[in-house]
């Protein structure tokens, strides 16, 4: 039997303003899975990630994250959120520094893993948007998280950079198989990356559909033009359009 890393049952979240962000949300995510959540903007996808991260508390319902220790968890935000006064290497060291863990070897390894060794001493302002996001992902992976939460990390990038980083992210995931919870509003990206795509309704958010993506890994860039890929992506887009009208 697969072990469930994240279990949400009847999850509700109201903001102090009285707005309901999530309504009776149920889902299970197994260890090592790559799961994406798509939904109309403002549907509560990001709110759900924050709940999983323990950055916010649900109003009611149950949310279990296996070994609910925030230290086993890493978050990649929409913006790279790097510290401009620290070099690439020192930005990646930061989480280890805050936890008082040894850094040197792991930072070197992580820099190598994401192909940033040559930029170790560069400062964020000297890097392109895509490079900054790679540093941000490296900063998340350096702690060797069990679960990686990504909140529209590639939303601000151009399409070509986005696709390249998608392939990069999959390569990293296949090496370590952390559990991935990826929020996006880009359907093609979600299908390309994931084993499952969850479609959320407009606010208050709940899960409308749970769509398995059958393609085996490793996945190559050609997959995006495969008829079956396009059929699945179109199906999800239709569901999304429907979700927006609800």
């Amino acid at each position: 039997m697969e072990s469930q890393l994240v279990v949400a049952a009847g999850l509700n979240k109201y903001f102090p303003s009285g707005v309901q962000a999530l309504h009776d949300l149920n889902l299970e995510i197994s260890r090592g899975q790559f799961v994406s959540i798509v939904g109309p903007s403002g549907c509560g996808k990001s709110t759900f990630l924050r709940l999983v991260a323990g950055l916010d508390q649900p109003t009611s319902g149950e949310l279990r994250v296996e070994g609910h220790d925030p230290l086993g968890l890493a978050f990649v935000f929409q913006d790279a959120t790097l510290l401009p006064w620290r070099s690439v290497a020192h930005n990646i060291t930061l989480p280890l520094e805050l936890r008082h863990e040894d850094a040197d070897e792991r930072v070197t390894q992580t820099l190598e893993l994401v192909g940033l060794t040559d930029f170790a001493d560069a400062y964020p302002a000297q890097l392109s948007g895509g490079m900054r996001m790679r540093v941000s992902i490296a900063r998340a992976l350096v702690t060797r998280p069990q679960i990686l939460l990504l909140d529209e990390p590639f939303g601000a990038l151009d399409e070509i950079t986005r696709q390249r980083l998608n392939e990069e992210l999959l390569r990293l995931w296949q090496e370590d198989h952390w559990t991935s919870l990826f929020v996006t509003h880009n359907v093609s990206e979600a299908v390309f990356l994931s084993q499952r795509v969850l479609v959320m309704s407009a606010r208050p958010g709940r899960i409308l559909a749970d769509i398995p993506i059958p393609f085996p890994y490793p996945r190559s860039a050609y997959l995006r033009s495969a008829p079956e890929f396009i059929r699945i992506a179109n199906g999800i887009s239709r569901q999304l359009a429907h979700a927006d009208e609800l």
């Binding site: 925030p70 890493a74 978050f75 935000f77 913006d79 959120t81 520094e97 702690t143």
Partner: peptide, 23 residues
């Protein structure tokens, strides 16, 4: 301070002094 960076510090269990002097 960018609230996301504060979240990042919180996720890494940074204490008050770390938030002050490192951020």
């Amino acid at each position: 301070v960018d609230p996301h960076i504060l979240d990042f510090f919180a996720l890494n269990k940074a204490n008050r002094w770390q938030v002050l002097f490192k951020l």
